[in-house]
Amino acid sequence: MRGNLIWVLFKRELSSYFATPIAYVFIIIFLFLSGIFTFHLGNFFARGQADLMPFFNFHPWLYLFLIPALAMRLWAEERKSSTIELLLTFPITITEAVLGKFLAVWAFTAIALFLTFPMWISVNYLGNPDNAVIMAGYFGSLLMAGAFLSIGACMSALTKNQVIAFVVTVVVCLAFILSGFPMVLDFFNGWAPQIIVNAISSFSFLTHFNAITKGVIDLRDVIYFISLIAFWLFATAILIEMKKAD
């Protein structure tokens, strides 16, 4: 694995977002929706607390629809325009290609996330929040975005059709969110052994994300997201190797 080549691929991919309206549309909608969620649905003011909990609480739901839209083109587009044939006959490995593209789209969501900083400024202006907890929240949100993106990358490698990639990614991500939802866990609680209920809940984005946003960065939560990303990217590389000619 050669870092300089991953960097070259990363730069090309990231600049391609800004060469098209995708970047601007995505960022504007992301900021707009996170504002609405935080202030209207999250009762930011009525809670009377100086923190960003209402902001972060909605991130899984925001990501559920926005991230698959971002990830769906990652490989489907390469295949549709046949540039995949170019990319994979350059002297690079599939791992380098998968990493370069993934890191670019992840960096792009980091940029979008960074642009929510006015939220952080407001809460500091209005009160005295625990900024360490807020940083942890951003860190957790970024990790979770990476997990969503890795699933999206894999589904995008599966098909040439971006609509299918989008829908399948939403469904898979939804499953990863819901597995930690009280409603779902209650359903299993009645009859399934505790160990299974715990296993289901431990696979959830929510369980790990909520833990981090409370300000406790537990290594296990970080490892959970990182290994999830690694697993889906590994699957992406295998799928591309298998299906590149389709």
């Binding site: 090309r12 060469a19 098209t20 325009s81 540039t83 044939e85 006959t89 002297p91």
Partner: peptide, 16 residues
């Protein structure tokens, strides 16, 4: 791959 230059059918390139 280092030794080969390849023009695939239809000459694909990144349109943007």
């Amino acid at each position: 791959k280092e030794r080969i230059g390849y023009l695939p059918e239809g000459a694909p390139a990144y349109p943007d």
